[in-house]
């Protein structure tokens, strides 16, 4: 008896839907992680509320941007855990699933699960932030950009770790440095003027600055707006494409 094996040409992102579903099943059980994904934001909001309540609107939109940013941390941990502990990426890569679908599927699965606490924060923020349709739209757009950026960076980072234990130190440094030290939770104008251009180039603080200027908290120059939106767009695209290509490259170890 003979059987015909038909090799179909590999389409980019093949298997994406299927892997999103797998990841949803996995992450759906992580109720604890879901609940705690908001802890840092919660703590910082409380700090602002106690020490400087006037900054609460900025802090709330910052918390939303930060939440999207830290989703990259989930991607980083998940990708590294699956690779190191379960070797399941070997399992998936030696299958019709495309490596970039593995990356994006994981990122989307995590997004779909961990978005709900962010929605809750956004709902609470209705009390303190005077949203206009354009502000809401802007916040939505930059949040999406920050998510895609951090998910991409998180996935790329994950390929460099050989041990789970090392991840926490590096990731907490990364996410706190760019999400807490840089002006995400507080107005750009409190940041040293000389360093402000750097803040406008880094995605989370660039996103926050754009929203802050739409809120009217800070007055961003035209150049500043261009710098922030331009670098955000370029970095998001570059990192996403980079992560997709990197996923292909690292699917097979060199």
């Amino acid at each position: 008896m003979t059987s015909d094996v038909v090799l179909s040409p590999s389409r980019p992102f093949r298997g994406l839907r299927w892997f999103v579903f797998t990841e949803l099943l996995v992450q759906g059980h992580e109720t604890l992680a879901m609940a705690t994904s908001m802890v840092v934001q919660g703590v910082l909001l409380v700090f602002v509320w106690i020490l400087n309540p006037g900054l609460l609107p900025v802090a709330f939109v910052g918390a939303i941007v930060f939440s999207m940013f830290t989703m990259g941390n989930r991607v980083l941990n998940e990708a590294a855990y699956l690779r190191i502990d379960h070797r399941s990426n070997d399992l998936y890569f030696a299958s019709p699933l495309q490596p970039e679908a593995y990356f994006l599927g994981m990122a989307l699965g995590i997004l779909l699960v961990y978005i709900w606490p962010v929605v809750a924060i956004a709902a609470v923020s209705l009390w303190v932030v005077a949203y206009t349709p354009s502000l809401a739209l802007l916040l939505f757009a930059v949040s999406a950009g920050v998510w895609l950026f951090s998910a991409s960076v998180g996935y790329i980072f994950s390929t460099f770790f050989r041990e789970n234990r090392a991840i926490w130190a590096y990731s907490s440094l990364f996410f706190n440095l760019f999400g807490v030290l840089f002006p995400v939770f507080y107005p750009l104008t409190l940041f040293p003027p000389a360093l402000q251009p750097i803040a406008l180039v880094l995605p989370p603080s660039a996103a926050a600055a754009l929203v802050q200027s739409a809120l009217g908290t800070i007055a961003l120059s035209t150049n500043g707006v261009w710098l922030a939106s331009g670098s955000l767009a370029v970095e998001v695209m570059a990192c996403f494409v980079g992560a997709a290509l990197w996923a292909r490259r690292t699917a097979r170890e060199p």
Partner: peptide, 13 residues
């Protein structure tokens, strides 16, 4: 392994 980070984060933060 998955629980470590959220549990620690929650408790200590």
């Amino acid at each position: 392994q998955r629980e470590i980070w959220p549990v620690g984060n929650l408790t200590f933060a």
